[in-house]
Design a protein around this nucleic acid. Structure first.
Lengths: 183, 183
DNA sequence: GTCTATACCTTGATAGAC
DNA sequence: GTCTATCAAGGTATAGAC
């Protein structure tokens, strides 16, 4: 992996573990055994770095969509939830949850990128739920987008709260989401 | 209101709007037209301030419990959710959501206080759900604590995501939580 | 209780050599 | 592409006068 990608990966992990305003370029430079000036070579500002990180997640989302495109709706949702589960390991939460929290401390440009990632995620989930509902896999009585919102917010909140309470809580909630859908 | 309480109130608002690691003593001192040294007179460290803020919320929770103690379970839950709604005004999220996010950047002492506040909240909600279920108001088929977890995490996530998407989303989700319970 | 003054550190960022 | 050197700004925190 080249240095640029390593910086993005470390920044990503730091944001999701400690938050955007709680990590510095020196956290990354120490880990990579380079100087902070070298990071500025790749990313002139911290804002540029976080944008690159969001864009990486946009690409990952597209790859995920592609990868599960042939599966049935139930499997799609299970895979979707499992991404958030792996993501959460070692206390890291999803990029969406972490960055939403620091939303008001971002420049307009970062806010826009974050909105795009959020909407792309929400749109895919809405479409997948609709598909599963129409095919008789899922059962719920509300707008598809509303159900999608509830599932996403439930996951984001669960990631957050699991830090304080107990990691097992997270699994309980994921189980409940699936059971509620296919009941 | 005395200076100490003003500092706590401003710190509370700043944490819930921008996060613990994104505000400084000078944000508070400017607002109060005092010097940063004066804040240190009341709170020697930033850690001491956040602990005082958590303890204020512990007291607020006790007052809330007392205030709704005579109401029926449905009203209790509605009041509980409405607290989170008011809380969210102007983009401020709940103290639980905001501090959970910065959990790994806190000292052990702050983490402990936050755990206490979280558990107290969760315990009250669990008991209230159980009461309402036993009295036939609420209908769900899982452990009471699990249902309490789902409700809390749903609210925390909704507060978070509403910043990025649309405030109206938050109301939609609250509605859905109530409807799901009493359906 | 609030101030001035200041110490000390970390931050994000830049200039220019290699 | 990475380094040294350096910067200005802002952070938490403290000492001591008033």
């Amino acid at each position: 992996m080249n240095t640029r990608d390593k910086i993005i990966l470390l920044g990503d992990n730091l944001i999701r573990k400690r938050g955007y305003n709680a990590f510095s370029f020196s956290d990354i430079s120490k880990e990579l055994n380079i100087k902070n000036a070298s990071i500025h070579y790749y990313f002139p500002t911290k804002t540029a770095l976080v944008i690159a990180i969001i864009q990486k997640h946009l690409i990952l989302l597209e790859k995920f969509k592609e990868k599960v495109s042939e599966k049935d709706s139930v499997q799609k949702i299970i895979k979707f939830l499992s991404v958030y589960s792996i993501t959460k390991s070692e206390g890291r939460i999803s990029i969406l949850g972490s960055l939403s929290n620091d939303y008001f401390t971002f420049t307009a440009e970062v806010q826009t990128e974050l909105k795009i990632l959020t909407n792309n995620t929400l749109n895919w989930l809405t479409d997948t739920l609709k598909e599963g509902r129409q095919q008789g896999f899922f059962h719920y009585d509300m707008e598809d987008r509303k159900k999608a919102l509830i599932i996403i917010t439930n996951i984001l909140g669960a990631e957050q709260l699991s830090r304080v309470t107990d990691n097992y809580d997270f699994h309980k909630i994921k189980e409940a989401i699936i059971n509620d859908l296919i009941k």
